[in-house]
Computed example of a mutant assay.
Amino acid sequence: MTARLTLRVLPPAPRYGTPFDVGAVGFDEGWWISRWHEGGGPDADAITLSLDGDEVARAMVLHDGPEAEHVGLVPLTDPVELTRIEVAEQHRGRGLGRDAVLAIARHYAGRDIWGHGDAAAFYEKTGWTRYERADGDTSIVPFFVLHP
């Protein structure tokens, strides 16, 4: 049985700020606080996922499509990019990453979600399809799509 996470898209952050709770424990501060704007934060959906009122995961989602061509990849349907996702350290190992991806997929129902990730096993276990670059470049982390 999967946990039923509550997903919220946070309001935009003030200039060079973060929309996330800076006091939350277990998250990579560099991702969510000091580098939020460098990673596209002003144009991103800041997603927080909670279980019983406790924030257990975060994600950054951009409204764009991939630039490179990939073998076998057909045009994506209204794509969004999952640029970052993190389960709080104290909640890891409980399947909440999978549950967070499922909640994000429900939120963006009918849309293709894509991303680059070096955690290939995680993406493959959570239903993503891996595509290789058409130009053969293997220097970039793997490319995955979660089709609706």
Rank of each mutant, 00 (worst) to 15 (best):
M1E: 09
T6G: 13
T6F: 10
A13K: 07
A13N: 01
P14V: 05
Y16V: 00
E29T: 12
G30Q: 00
W32L: 12
G39V: 04
G41R: 11
P42T: 15
D43T: 11
A44H: 03
A46I: 05
S50H: 05
D52P: 06
V56T: 06
A57P: 08
A59I: 04
V61K: 05
V61Y: 08
H63Q: 15
H63F: 15
G65L: 14
P66K: 12
A68S: 05
E69S: 11
H70T: 05
H70D: 07
V71D: 04
V74A: 03
T77G: 00
D78A: 00
L82P: 00
R84S: 12
R84V: 02
I85A: 13
A88Q: 01
E89G: 10
Q90Y: 00
G93T: 07
R94G: 02
G95C: 06
L96H: 06
L96D: 04
L96I: 05
V101I: 15
D112K: 02
I113D: 03
D118Y: 09
A121Q: 13
F122E: 00
F122H: 00
Y123P: 04
E124G: 07
E124M: 08
K125W: 00
K125H: 06
R130F: 14
R130D: 10
Y131C: 07
A134R: 04
D135K: 14
T138A: 13
T138S: 13
S139N: 01
I140R: 14
F144A: 00
L146E: 01
L146S: 14
H147E: 09
H147G: 01
